[in-house]
Design a protein around this nucleic acid. Structure first.
Lengths: 357, 357
DNA sequence: ATTTTTCTGATTTACGTACCTCAAATTTTC
DNA sequence: GAAAATTTGAGGTACGTAAATCAGAAAAAT
């Protein structure tokens, strides 16, 4: 049987009340006594029964997710997963709430972070925007011992506890590696399609992609990035124009949110020589395109994993329990048409009105 | 606030004792009363607080993992992960134990399953061997409402609750797809290296591999499978011989446990024309070979994920709680040298004395 | 040495559920 | 309609921890 607080009291030769004072860092214990108790805890290997403690405290964990608003459908998918977690929240004594802020707006994010801090939550998950002010705001949360997890997009230089997301440089490198090998030394320039170059994860992907392309497949020229602003119509137009301008284009790396427009553009040139396409995020559109052979590979980050991982980490941090690092590492999933997961139960991956990302 | 048993009693107009009798399916309640209580539960949306219930019951979950013995290092890695879970077991009221049976011995497995059943565990995870007797033994467990999860290797036709493992046919298909594209229409036969063709997951991988090769890359002949019995020395000899016999070999698919011998054999022919190699399971040997360019891609199943997933599912089933299907799907990880996870905290992936699988 | 302050002990209640006992009420059986 | 059997109610204790009160002991300050 696991030792209990009573066992500590007995082992330390003090009363239950004193043990409680030490355990819950209440005032009114001399240092000598405190040390005696702490040694006893160490000696008998006591670990607090978190479930019982929560029951006694009738504790709920108020967790806050700060997400960008707007119609980025990857983010909307992420939000759907947070909602799913909210629904099962009560079962695990969690009260998850969502705060939305305008995308890529550091000032608004700082405001949200500070407001959230006032409510003294048990943990905060945030899709970070890079800025010194945001770093400072996150650090203010940490200064009040509120656990912070960055989601999807990390915040380098901050005191955040954890990052729940993929290594985007590695993702870009992998995309280049696949692309280069799939091209089979067929020459021709490579087009890059992004939403906007002002987003860190997109920049990182491009950096990784370019690094491997330059090093391992130097024969290919990288065309300047097309910025489709995640707009299907605009993207289709720009991609069509780019392909017309460089008819010899050998490959396209779609590292952002423009897949739907990209796919439409690709369909309109079926007689043209094939182009090797590597895209990000598995949605119903990219899935279909993979199956049709329009897209050769899709790199995916599992939003559901990211959300659940963030919650697990927040809870562990709130409880002062160690996290299983290996469990919380988010892998880049590589999908070819041959290892697509079955559809069932996949609603979350393909938001209803969602575009491709 | 969540409704409690007291709320049920009030809502149904009965006493706490009666609510308790209904909730815990004790005898001595008329059907009319039972229905009244059940309707009240439904109406106010009561869900049992599992943590409090477990506390009251001082419940521990005795889970049993039945693993094959022998020196298959993938299995030993799996066992290490089970041990890791055992260590954190008490924290979550779990008492995990391991039963080892001779590998691929259906009779021994049946004996183990029946013996385990006697101990009335809260759940059983088993690396299945395919046989009607094993199916029957698993069904006997299920008949006593003991949750059963198959691990790594599934048991088709049984009443097991869940399979914690990858889709090996899809893995084989993916390997073929990568291999075919990486070969860039370079001709030549393809060698297949297996441990033994009597294992279901190996067979499935080969089936998937062959299907895609025949369909999408019909130019390549598949050489008969080399069975290296997971022995490094034997494997090295056989692979060396095979490469010498077919000097034009374009690719090697290592679908089993022979990676260490394979790598040694590959190193001894550095002047020979390059061979495209796709292997299974990321270990320190395959990782190094990836980095050196000896292996082109590694497909991996994350043993840690599988173990933790199995435990989560067993616990959920034992509690009568729904599982999050999307969370429990084990993906095939594809590793190129560009997306290898960092080393830190990776001990479990590379068992100390472990060979390549 | 006395007062004040600080520390410690003993005890109680609570969290939500499980499980037990005993008596009372109700239904069934003859 | 009485006896027997079944069903229900009321109440308590327990699980391991938190949090509180209040009295008493020890230390510090005067």
């Amino acid at each position: 049987m696991r030792p209990t607080v009573h066992d500590i009291a007995a082992a330390a030769g003090v009363s239950l009340a004193t043990v409680d004072r030490v355990l819950n860092q209440r005032a009114g214990v001399r240092n000598v006594t405190r040390e005696k108790v702490e040694q006893a805890i160490e000696r008998i290997g006591f670990v607090r029964d978190v479930a019982a403690a929560n029951l006694a405290k009738s504790r709920v964990y108020p967790f806050v997710f700060i997400l960008p608003s707007g119609d980025n459908s990857f983010m909307r998918g992420l939000e759907a997963h947070v909602h799913a977690a909210m629904a099962r929240g009560p079962l695990e004594r969690m009260a998850i709430s969502i705060v939305k802020v305008p995308a890529f707006n550091a000032e608004a994010l700082v405001g949200a972070l500070d407001e959230v801090r006032e409510t003294a939550p048990a943990g905060v998950a945030v899709v970070a925007v890079e800025s010194p002010d945001v770093i400072a705001a996150v650090n203010r949360l940490r200064a009040e011992r509120i656990p912070v997890v960055t989601l999807v997009s990390d915040l380098a230089g901050s005191a955040r506890d954890h990052f729940a997301g993929v290594d985007n440089v590695a993702a870009g490198r992998t995309a280049a590696s696949l692309m280069g090998r799939f091209l089979c030394s067929r020459p021709g320039p490579i087009a890059v399609l992004a939403g906007s170059m002002r987003v860190r994860d997109h920049r990182e992907r491009l950096d990784g992609f370019r690094a491997v392309m330059d090093k391992d497949f130097p024969g290919h020229m990288l065309l300047p990035a097309i910025e489709g602003q995640d707009d299907p119509v605009l993207t289709e137009k720009l991609v069509g124009a780019a392909l017309a301008a460089s008819p010899g284009t050998a490959g396209i790396y779609s590292l952002g949110a423009g897949n739907r427009g990209l796919i439409t553009a690709l369909k309109q040139r079926d007689s043209a020589p094939p182009v090797c396409v590597v895209a990000h995020e598995l949605t119903r559109h990219t899935r279909a395109a993979l199956n049709e052979g329009l897209i050769d590979a899709v790199l995916n980050q599992d939003a559901g994993h990211e959300v659940r991982s963030a919650i697990r980490v927040l809870k562990a941090k709130a409880d002062g329990v160690a996290v299983i690092e290996a469990q919380e590492r988010i892998y880049i999933d590589i999908f070819l048409k041959d290892n697509l997961p079955f559809d069932e139960g996949d609603e979350m991956q393909k938001p209803e009105q969602g575009e491709e990302r």
